[in-house]
């Protein structure tokens, strides 16, 4: 040890790599010290916008809602299962409860009876939430478009971020759609939430027309209803 204090001080502030090596420990453990860690060097900090960081996190760890409706859900299950394994993209943990999910894949035809229920499930998800519409039925009603009971696309009821066309789309197509969604989320883009043609309303708030008067003794004033104006549908 040197007896000269200045020299001691000089040595201690030298920009050396010793500190980094000390911090990284003897014999680099390949598992713990990633390339990223090495690149950060002595100061393991990066500067980024918090927003950007959060978006990156959101996109890289998506909890999907386990939501099966129709034919497309079979291909959706295949995307989660062996071979296609959507977990590779950080999007493979289906949650049974909407309260734990942040992405909902709508895999199938929405019919009148299911519309209000889907709206309710969507409303139960915490913000920020994203929607992938899977298959032609969620775009326009698909092959069932002319049906008396079929809602002409999921977008009539909830906002949709990504549409995956096909009847049904292959698992590869769904995974591409999810990857595109991740890209959008990482860039901070999402679809605007606007009022949709079909909303849940209290029965008492509806304008008094023929249909409302006919149903007045069947439905309570505070009951939630969804009114389908089929003639206005695309």
């Amino acid at each position: 040890m040197s007896n000269e204090p200045t020299q001691q001080i000089y040595d201690s502030t030298a920009p050396s790599t010793e500190d980094r090596d000390a911090r990284m420990g003897q014999g680099v453990d390949a598992r713990m010290n990633s390339k990223l860690r090495e690149a950060f060097g002595a100061s393991p900090f990066i500067l980024t916008k918090f927003d950007q960081f959060m978006n990156w996190v959101r996109g890289s760890s998506m909890f999907m809602l386990q939501f099966g409706i129709a034919c497309c859900s079979i291909e959706m299950i295949h995307s989660y299962a062996i071979k296609h394994d959507m977990d590779r993209f950080g999007a493979g943990v289906p949650r049974a409860s909407p309260r734990q999910a942040d992405v909902i894949i709508v895999p199938g035809t929405i019919v009148s009876k299911f519309g209000p229920r889907m709206k309710r499930v969507y409303d139960q998800m915490p913000e920020p939430k994203f929607v992938v519409g899977m298959g032609s039925c969620t775009i326009s009603g698909g092959p069932f478009q002319e049906g008396y009971n079929v809602v002409k696309g999921a977008e009539e009821i909830i906002p949709v971020d990504i549409h995956v066309p096909g009847c049904p789309p292959r698992p590869e197509a769904l995974i591409y759609g999810v990857a595109k969604l991740q890209e959008r989320i990482a860039n901070g883009e999402s679809s605007p939430v606007v009022v949709k043609p079909y909303e849940l309303e209290q029965f008492g708030d509806l304008p008094q027309d023929e249909l409302v008067q006919k149903l007045a003794d069947q439905i309570d004033e505070d009951d939630l209803v969804m009114r389908y104006n089929w003639s206005d549908s695309p």
Binding site: S112, K113, G115, P116, R117, K119, R120, Y148, N149, L200, F203, L211, V212, K214, L215, Q218, I219, D223, L224, V225, M226, R227, Y228, N229, W230, S231
Partner: peptide, 27 residues
């Protein structure tokens, strides 16, 4: 198959598909 509040019988001959329908989300 259809909700209780449905009006008309869709496979009967005089059914008008354009008419509005109402579906409840019963509590």
């Amino acid at each position: 198959l259809l909700p209780e509040t449905w009006q008309g019988h869709p496979l009967s001959l005089d059914y008008n598909q354009e008419k509005p329908q109402m579906v409840t989300l019963a509590e």
